[in-house]
Design a protein around this nucleic acid. Structure first.
Length: 733
DNA sequence: AAGGATTGCTTTTTT
DNA sequence: AGCAATCCTT
């Protein structure tokens, strides 16, 4: 075999070749943006299949999105000219676990017909738990409790093991336990359960673990830096025997720590697999030198990272455009005008993307795109699958699959109105609690008892009969056929068609059309079982739906931009409080993540990069002045195409309002060395968290980082950048 | 039980 | 500003 002429290795650089042909031990590829890491991963799989003669079904490859998985499968098919890759286990962690749990439901102690609960469903369950436990939902927000539960699950902590260091912890633990009980009562699994239950299964059942260890002779993971502990544990369990683990990572693109992703997994990998081989991919094939320079200037200010020497052969390039506008409307107009100009210059709409920190920012952009007649495609926002009518229809489908799904039951029990009101529901609920069973079963039991009054019985009986008949029909009918039956027999179809309101008209979208769209999705996946259909629908992200066939500008959050690339990229809203987001200003770790977020956005651009910010920005209702993002300070003048430029100067100790100005000083004064303001033992007050005691203060770079233990034990320890946090001393010390 | 009006609250990012 | 939860009326 000659590496120069081997068809799989042609057009790969030396490092990439090494990564593709490496021996079958643990390997970590540290890749920069645009270094072709997904390509390397694909070639590696093709290599294993063709050169190592590994059967496809023995390969497990995990990607971050379903879209990435689909693209990889398509590429493999093209490269190998056959469907060898079809038998491969390829998809996200969640999808892979969902499949394993479906197959091993009995051994895992789960219902075969389990349904996946999405964020809305989780919230509904947690709300019920909070009221059942008699907690104040202001003080114990269902959302925050879910956060805590999710964090625990990602770290494989079960309710019984939940650390109860404070009273708040105690309540979280109780809520967690009740939440799990309710979930299981409904035969439901939330996203985190998919991972957690798979790990539990493998840990508890040596035989099953052995089966999957033998099955997956090679395990490959993309975006390894964004794995959480549960996912890492899963990888370790599967590979610690044969040690054929292949991970691709870029620390600088780790942007999901809020979801439990733990960049320390890279370190764990090095410890758990001491023989780990590491390969660096430093050549960037995507961006011009100038864009890369700008991005590196931003990211290199982060501490705790492996410095990389990224380079590209696309020397020079157009300077990065930095644009200030008065408010978000003008910013949107600027973007729209540039888009039109670029279009006239020959750039396809599909080659342009506009990125922002929060979904709410898309509104102004959409408006000006509509005004200018520019076609666009919105990723995220109100996701298709979280629209009311879609959720309603899915709830009917879920009931057909699993009548015990209480969340779905409650959702549609009286939609359309069937005369089943609060009182009736309470009766059913009481019966369910008493019999430790689901609402549906309780309803059936009540009907059988014959104790209900005539009117209630006449309301409930048809529904009970319908659910039962749908459940019975679910395996003989196709998903599309079942949907048709549901829509007509439940009266929901007619109900939606009769409910066309003004607001809908204006937005030019109709609920009925959305329902038809979902029906079309079902028709497309002909031959798919109801349970697979529901699983698929629950686990798709919006990026997955990206339809590239229409020529339109893409509008998306920085988070969903990961893994994508466009000739022209606009990163908008580069303001203090937005990027970095105000929720992140308190903690150095989160601040570093905000920086990485900008880095991800910038490195999506191939040819042309725009960075924009506004002088004022509307935050729910009122309009507030904003300061340009601190990250902009790190862009060298050369990148912006200026010989020299005014520096943005911010008064220390405040990021407030209009307290910034532009000076035409060629050389801005160096930041003064930081003199620590706080000392250990000092009492302080934080605007949000109240009183506490400083336990540590250290100067890191230009910042003073203080650790505070708060009085309110529910808060515990927090780290702040002293100059940025609303923190004031209460005592000398 | 259903629909409409009022209040109060919120926004980070998503598999 | 927009939306959900809550109150109020029929």
């Amino acid at each position: 075999m000659n590496p120069e002429t081997h068809p799989l290795l042609q057009s790969l650089n030396a490092q990439q070749r090494e990564a593709v042909t490496a021996s079958e031990g643990p390997l970590l590829i540290l890749a920069g943006p645009g270094s072709g890491k997904t390509r390397v991963l694909t070639h590696r799989i093709a290599w294993l299949l063709s050169e190592r003669q590994l059967p496809a079904w023995q390969i497990m490859a995990v990607t971050f999105t379903n879209k990435a998985a689909r693209e990889m499968r398509e590429r493999l098919t093209r490269m190998l000219g056959r469907d060898a890759a079809l038998e491969m286990t390829l998809g996200t962690f969640h999808a892979t676990c969902a499949r394993i749990l479906r197959r091993e439901s009995e051994r895992a102690g789960l219902a075969r017909d389990y349904v996946i609960f999405d964020t809305d469903d989780q919230l509904a369950v947690m709300k019920a738990v909070v009221s059942e436990l008699g907690l104040d939902d202001k003080r114990y927000r269902p959302g925050s409790l879910l956060n805590a539960v999710s964090r625990a699950k990602n770290e494989l902590v079960l309710p019984a093991d939940y650390p109860r260091r404070t009273y708040y912890d105690e309540l979280v633990a109780r809520a967690y336990a009740r939440y799990q009980e309710r979930l299981r009562q409904s035969s439901g699994l939330d996203f985190d359960d998919l991972l957690l239950e798979t790990v539990r299964l493998f840990r508890a059942d040596a035989e099953t673990l052995e089966k999957y260890r033998r099955r997956f002779r090679a395990v490959l993971v993309d975006e390894f830096q964004d794995t959480n502990i549960a996912q890492y544990t899963l990888l370790r369990l599967l590979t610690q025997e044969h040690r054929h683990l292949y991970a691709v990572a870029d620390e600088d693109q780790s942007i999901y720590s809020w979801r439990g992703a733990d960049y320390r997994n890279i370190q764990r990998l090095r410890e758990d697999f001491p023989e780990l081989r590491q390969i660096l991919l430093e050549e960037n094939y995507r961006s011009t030198q100038i864009i890369l320079d700008g991005a590196m200037a931003v990211i290199s200010r982060n501490l705790d990272r492996t410095p990389k020497r990224l380079f590209t052969r696309k020397a020079g390039g157009l300077p990065v455009t930095l644009h200030e506008s008065y408010d978000e409307r003008e910013e949107a107009q600027f973007v729209a005008r540039e888009v039109r100009a670029l279009r006239r210059g020959g750039v396809a709409y599909g080659g342009m993307a506009v990125m922002y920190r929060t979904n709410a920012q898309s509104r102004a952009l959409e408006e000006s795109f509509v005004n200018e007649g520019i076609p666009y495609r919105l990723v995220g926002g109100t996701r298709f699958y979280s629209r009311k009518e879609i959720k309603d229809l899915l709830a009917y489908l879920r009931l057909a699959q699993n009548p015990d799904d209480d969340v779905s039951f409650q959702r549609v029990v009286n939609v359309p109105p069937r005369g089943i009101g609060q009182r009736t529901l309470e009766t059913i609920g009481a019966q369910a609690r008493e019999g430790q069973t689901s609402l549906y079963r309780a309803m059936v039991a009540l009907l059988a008892q014959g104790t209900l009054d005539g009117r209630t019985r006449r309301a409930l009986e048809p529904l009970a009969t319908l659910i039962q008949s749908w459940h019975a029909a679910r395996e003989t009918l196709s998903v599309g056929q079942l949907m048709d039956r549901l829509l007509s027999e439940s009266g929901y179809g007619a109900y939606v068609q009769s409910q066309v309101d003004e607001v809908e008209r204006k937005r030019g979208e109709s609920r009925w059309e959305n329902i038809l769209a979902l029906r079309a999705v079902a028709e497309e996946s002909a031959g798919v079982t109801l349970s697979d259909f529901l699983t698929e629908v629950a686990l798709v992200a919006d990026v997955d739906q990206l339809d590239e066939s229409v020529d339109a500008v893409t509008l998306l959050t920085l988070h969903s931009a990961k893994g994508l690339e466009y000739p022209v990229v606009f990163v908008t809203g580069l303001e203090e409080g937005l990027l970095p987001h105000s929720q992140s200003l308190d903690s150095p770790q989160e601040l570093a993540e905000e920086r990485r977020l900008l880095y991800v956005g910038m490195t999506r651009a191939q040819e042309r990069l725009y960075l924009t910010y506004a002088f004022r920005r509307g935050w729910y209702g009122n309009n507030q002045p904003a300061a340009p993002s601190r990250f902009l300070d790190d862009l060298p003048d050369e990148v912006l195409g200026r010989a020299r430029r005014g520096k943005t100067v911010r008064p220390t100790g405040s990021w407030g309002a209009s307290a910034w100005s532009r000076e035409a000083t060629p050389a801005p004064p160096p930041r003064p060395a930081v003199a620590p303001r706080f000392r250990a033992g000092q009492r302080v007050r934080h605007a949000r968290y109240g009183e506490g005691v400083v336990t540590e203060s250290a100067v890191e770079g230009d910042d003073e980082v203080v650790t505070v233990r708060f009085k309110d034990s529910g808060i515990g320890f927090k780290k702040f950048v002293a100059g940025m946090a609303p923190l004031e001393p209460l005592s000398e010390h």
